[in-house]
Design a protein around this nucleic acid. Structure first.
Lengths: 338, 338
DNA sequence: CTGAAAGCGCTAACAT
DNA sequence: ATGTTAGCGCTTTCAG
């Protein structure tokens, strides 16, 4: 049998209330009693029962973490890192994270995660793009929500977002500063806020530097932004016969795919062509040459999300914040002065 | 305020005890009452409070899932898939999974996961290789443990394991059946049970078929078994000038790296050299040629682990089982009749 | 077949 | 400064 608050009280010769106060660090307990209680706690190796606490506090101490299956199983551990960040922070903040996935094409017949139905969580962190339908369906549960790396104002929530616009500008301007005049952009589905923001950042940088936008240098694939898509985008670009000396890929996966294509045609990187990506994934380092990119602090984003959640949970007032996480230019060997 | 069992009882004109019995599907309730109660539950959208249940049952309804950080963040979503399998199954079995990582080099100064210290879990699933020290440190907590894809008999637990020996034999015999006489093996740290088992399976198949083992055709890298390691192992093999027409790599990552090296030297696959891997990771399909391999059912392994845990948790008797999950030969284009 | 009631371990008024 | 006590929502004997 596990030791309970009663055991501690008995051993320390106080009431359970006193023990409870000591455990919670209330200062209206005399130092001596406090000391005695603490000793008893140590001696008995007492840990308060979560269940009992939860029952009386009407909270669960759990925070749900949701992402779509494909995001979780993706080769790049992008969301996995974000999860890890929230898990790290949850340790400090005394919360547990309940991770679950939802089908990538969540449909109206799909059940909501059990922890939502059973109300086993105090709040919900949603990472990455999820179907609108899902957001709608959880609305009635009135859970505090923090989104990470995705945002929809379908119903207002707090969000932790990458500074995609700023980062894309920075990347583009870096390329410009290297003397490149004709810069191509390869990307995917503009419905995705991250991608469209990066695209915008790219255009803004050109405008700001009074460079005309050459439509032929913009290649947007239908949907995904994988290595394969990058490969094909590069091929398309190459075969369009338009002149360019640098490529800004909307993410590293596409950049890597593109690089692979260009190299296969004999184009040398960075001598003939500079390429920069976005995300800073592990694979960048194993490329030949290693890929220049914009670094996204994934762990930190996860931590930030958890902190936001804790704030929402402790203050009653619902401050809806959008937090923009800055990204950092990482120069490696895939970019070069023209 | 959330609806409680009392609300349901009042609405259905019964006692809370009756509601409880209905919820648990006891059959000593008359059909009419049962019906009435069920209607009330629906109408009020009642879900029993986990905390209250946990408190009275002295269980938490949670199962911990532990892996090392590097395993979780690996590029290949191998353990991620295993986790997903346990999570899927946990949904059926009414458990929540608490996922946490431990440092890859867990040292004696590292804290144990909070959910162990606070006893917030009923059992623990450990996936992949973890430091012995960790296993030792959790022993006093006397938690039911199920290991997945790793086993140590430091203290006896149940385990869900890949049939590595059988799979390696199968792969090797397949290569033999193709007419290959000189088959190389590339692998890593034999301290790791999976790798050493695959190595043994390889040797056993040779023996069984009365083929001598050529030491020059065995390349074991120091530690890891990544693409890079495969690349270097292949290089080493190639430069040793020993004759071989087929390679069995201890996993797909190494196989892919090896293939990359061989192709770079002009060796054609499968015309000049057959390669087979192990694991069946997603990347296999994107290789040129697509990689033949032994398929490991990761999701199923996770499910199996959870089921084992539930069994242990429901029976008091601790049956320690080792479950061997069979693997399946997948023939793609990297292997060919000699 | 159903209800009354004790109690799981803890917290938070309210007393003292 | 500390103790008493009434719940939190549920399960589970034990009666009826």
């Amino acid at each position: 049998m596990r030791t309970t608050i009663k055991d501690v009280a008995k051993k320390a010769n106080v009431s359970t209330a006193t023990v409870s106060l000591v455990v919670h660090g209330h200062n209206r307990i005399s130092p001596e009693t406090k000391n005695r209680v603490e000793k008893a706690i140590k001696a008995l190796n007492y840990y308060p029962s979560k269940s009992a606490r939860n029952l009386v506090s009407r909270k669960t101490g759990n925070i749900g973490f949701i992402l779509t299956e494909d995001h979780f199983l993706k080769t790049e551990p992008f969301y996995t890192q974000i999860f890890l960040g929230t898990e790290f922070e949850a340790r400090n903040q005394e919360y547990y994270i309940l991770l679950t996935t939802i089908p990538t094409n969540f449909s109206k017949d799909d059940d909501l995660p059990r922890f939502i139905l059973e109300r086993s969580i105090d709040g919900l962190i949603i990472a990455g793009k999820v179907p609108d339908l899902f957001i709608e369906k959880i609305e009635p549960f009135n859970l505090p929500i923090v989104m990470v790396d995705y945002y929809t104002d379908h119903n207002a929530q707090s969000a932790v977002l990458i500074d995609n616009i700023g980062g894309a500008q920075q990347a583009t301007e870096y390329l410009l500063s290297l003397g490149h005049k004709n810069i191509a952009f390869i990307g995917g589905d503009l419905e995705h806020p991250s991608i469209s923001d990066r695209y915008h950042g790219f255009k803004m940088a050109l405008e700001k530097n009074k460079k005309a936008l050459n439509e032929n240098l913009i290649v947007l694939t239908e949907n995904a932004t994988s290595r394969e898509d990058g490969y094909h985008a590069a091929k398309f670009l190459h075969q369009s016969q338009t002149d360019f000396s640098a490529v800004f890929a909307c993410n590293d996966a596409m950049a890597i795919g593109a690089m692979q294509y260009f190299k296969s045609t004999g184009i040398r990187i960075p001598q003939d062509l500079s390429i920069i990506g976005f995300d800073n994934i592990e694979g960048d380092l194993y490329q030949d040459p290693p890929l220049s990119t914009m670094s996204v602090p994934k762990i930190e984003m996860g931590q930030e999300a958890l902190q936001q959640m804790v704030q929402i949970l402790s203050n009653k007032k619902k401050v809806l914040k959008k937090i923009l996480i800055p990204v950092e230019l990482i120069v490696r060997q895939s970019t070069k002065q023209k």
